[in-house]
Design a protein around this nucleic acid. Structure first.
Lengths: 213, 213, 213, 213
DNA sequence: CATGAATGAGACTTCATTCAT
DNA sequence: TATGAATGAAGTCTCATTCAT
C-alpha cells in the first residue's frame, strides 16, 4: 500500500505518477518495468518514489488492485441494479463501453491484466492473490451467470469460455490496433469490433451451407 | 541462428536445452528469462550456452521462428492440400489438434507466442519481424479466407477477429488449466474446449428468447 | 560524452577518477583496462561509474579527445599567433615544454596516444576518428609546414617523417625513463633529450669522416 | 618453451601457427590476442594448441625471444664481421634492409616489440626479462657504438636517442602505411623512407637560414 | 519532503584452459 | 596425438534501493 505521503500529493501529481506507471507496466510488463524510466517520465526524483511507495511491488499491487479490480468491480456495482431489465445486447454494450473507457483512459490497463497471467510463480503474484483471489473471474462472470439464469444465454454455452472471450476483446483491440497500424483508438474502431463480435455471438460463423457440412 | 556446436549435440541434450528454454521463456517472458537459471536447470555450464548460441536473442529467435512458426506453418503445409475437401469442422479439429499437440509437447510455446506481442519496441522484435513479418497472421488466416471463399463461413464474419479468437484458444487452455487447478492437460480437456467453441461458432450464444430482446 | 552527473561532481573527485582512468588505460591499454580496478582505485561504486559514463568507450573517448587532443590543440592555439616570429628552436622548445608538462601531469597520456595506433580495426577507433579524423596529424604538422614555407626547414625534409619523430619524442621519454630506471621525470631529463634532439636536427649525426664515406 | 610435440610438427604447420600467432599478437596486442581466433585461423584444434604450448604466455614468450630477439641478433651476427669496413650508409641500409625483411615476412614483429613496452608490470614481462634483460637495447646499439668508436658518428650524438629513432622506423612504416592508405608495403616505400631518414641524419633539418636563427 | 548521487547484487558475455573421446 | 565440447572465473553493464544533503 502506498505510504501516506503519496496520498498527500496533489491529485494531479498523483494521477501523473499512476498514468506513467500504468503505461510502463503495460508496455514493459512487470519484469521489464523500469523505475528509473518512470520517475524520469513522471518528473519526480528517484528518492521521492520511495517516499511514496514501499517498493516496485507496492506500486504494482496498487495499480492491479485499485485500478483494474477497482474498475472492473465498478461495472458490476453500476450495472448490478439493472441486471433484471438489462437486455443482453445492452449488457454487452455496457461492458464494452467500460472496456472502451478503460482503453481511452488507460490503454495499458488491459495489457497489465493480461500480463498478470505470467507471474504465477512470482512472489508478487502471491501478494496479489492474497488480496484478490478471484481477480481473474470477477468481471464478466456475474453477468454471464445472470443471463444464463434468465434463459437468454443458452445453457450449452460454457460460461468460462465466454468470459475468456470477453476478456480477450481488449487484447483484440490492441492486436487490431497494431496490425492495422492505426495511430490511436477511435470509438468507431471499438464499435466496429463490437458489431463484429455481436454478429458472431448472435449467428455463429457459418452459412447454412457451412452448417450442413 | 544457433552455432554448429549446438546441432552437433546429442538429440537428447539438445531437446533438454530447448525444453528448459521454452519453459523459462514461457514462465518468465523474454525480459525475465534468466540464462543462469536455464543452464543450471539444463545441467550445462554457462560457457557452454555461449558455444551453442550467439546470445540470449539467438536462442529466443530460434525458439520463436523454428518452433512456433515452424509448427504453425506445419499445420498449413499439412492441411493446405486438403483445403478443397476439408469440412469446416474438420479444419477446426485439425488445427485444434495441432494446438493440442503443441500444448502436450510444450505447454510454454503458446505463452511465448502471446508474450511476443509485448515486445514490439524491443530490438529483438525487429529481428523476429525481419524474418517473419506476418508471423501473427500466418496461421489461421488462409483457412479462414478459404472457408469464406467457399461460402461456408459467412461474409459478415470479420476474419481478423475470428483469427484472433482462434489464436486465443491456446491462451484459454492455459487460463482454464490455471483456474481449474488441473495438474496436467488431458486430451479430454481440449476436446471439451473444442466442443464448447464449436457450439458457439455454430449457434452463437443466445437462446431464442435472448435473440429477440 | 560523460553524463551530466559526472560534471556535477566536485572537481577533486572528477580529477581523481580521470587520473585513475588515465593511469589504467596507459598501463593496461584499451583492451586490458579494467573498470573494476578503476572504481576500486578511485574509491567509487561500480554503479556510480555507469552514472557518470555511458560505458567504457565513453570514458576512453573522453580521455582521448578532451585530454590528448585538447592538450595538443592547446599548443596550437597558444602558439599559432606567434608562428610568424617563433624561431625554430623556440618552436621545438615550446612544443617540448608542452609534452613535458603532459608528462609531469599525466605520464600516461602519451602512452595512451601511442596505444591508439593499435586499435585501428576496433569499433572504438571508428568512434574516435568520427570526432577527430586527423587526430594523429593535428599536432606538429602545422608548425612544420609553416617552417618549410618560411624556408627554415629544408624542402627536402619529409614533413610526415619529421612529424612522426616529434610524436615519438614522448615515447622516447617513457623509453628512456624505463631503461635508465629513473624513478621520476626531472625537467633536466627533458632538457637533455631536447638538447640531444636539437643537435641531431641541426647537424645530422655524422662526422665529416662519416659523411664522406 | 613449446613442448616437444610442437617441434615434432611438419615445418610448414609450425610456420603457419607462428605466422598466425605473430599476426594476432601484432594486431591485437598481448592482452587482446585471442587463442580461439588463432586456432581457427591456423586450422588446428583448440586442444592441440595446449599440446604444443603450455599456455598463452608460452607462445608469446617463444615469439618474443626466438623471433624478435632472434632476428635482431641475426643482424648482429651477420654484420658484426663486417663492422670494420661497413660504411655508415651501408650499415643503415643493412639494418633497414633487415627491418624491411621483417616487415615483408612478418609485418607484425615490429609492432609486437613496440607493444612489449606496455607490459612492464605484467607477469609475462617478468618472464621475458628473466631471459632477455637487455632485449630492448640489443639491436642497433652495438652498431651505433661501433660507428661512434670509429669516429663516423659524432660523439655529440646521444646513442640511446639514435637507437630509439631507428627502432621507431618500423613504427613509422606502419604509421605511414596507415595514413597514406597504401594497401601493401612496397619496397619502394621503404626506400623512400630510408632516403628521407638518411637526408635528415646527414644534413639535419634546417636550411642555412633556419640554422642561423 | 525533495533530490539525485551512491550502492552492490546480479545479469549477460568472454575466453583461457581442461577433459573426454 | 587430435579434436572440440565443457568449464568457470572474470569482465562489462543494469537497476532496485538507500542515503546524505
Amino acid at each position: 500500500m502506498p505510504k501516506q505521503t503519496f496520498f498527500n500529493l496533489p491529485a494531479e501529481k498523483r494521477k501523473k505518477i499512476l498514468d506513467v506507471a500504468v503505461k510502463e507496466f503495460a508496455e514493459q510488463g512487470y519484469k521489464g518495468a523500469n523505475i528509473s524510466r518512470m520517475v524520469l517520465e513522471a518528473g519526480i526524483a528517484k528518492g521521492s518514489f520511495y517516499q511514496y511507495f514501499e517498493d516496485k511491488d507496492d506500486l504494482y499491487l496498487y495499480i492491479i488492485t485499485t485500478m483494474i479490480a477497482g474498475k472492473k468491480l465498478a461495472i458490476y456495482e453500476r450495472e448490478k441494479g439493472r441486471l433484471e431489465d438489462l437486455s443482453l445486447t445492452g449488457f454487452l454494450r455496457a461492458v464494452s463501453h467500460q472496456i472502451f473507457q478503460d482503453f481511452m483512459e488507460n490503454p495499458g490497463l488491459l495489457r497489465i491484466g493480461a500480463d498478470l497471467m505470467r507471474l504465477e510463480g512470482e512472489p508478487v503474484y502471491q501478494k496479489i492473490m492474497g488480496c484478490y483471489p478471484k481477480l481473474s473471474e470477477s468481471v464478466f462472470m456475474p453477468f454471464i451467470q445472470h443471463e444464463i439464469g434468465q434463459g437468454e444465454i443458452s445453457e450449452k454455452v460454457n460460461p468460462r469460455l465466454l468470459n475468456f472471450i470477453f476478456i480477450s476483446l481488449g487484447l483484440y483491440l490492441a492486436y487490431d490496433l497494431k496490425t492495422t497500424n492505426a495511430e490511436t483508438i477511435h470509438e468507431e474502431l471499438v464499435d466496429r469490433m463490437l458489431d463484429d463480435m455481436e454478429y458472431i455471438l448472435k449467428n455463429g460463423i457459418y452459412t447454412d451451407k457451412g452448417k450442413s457440412m
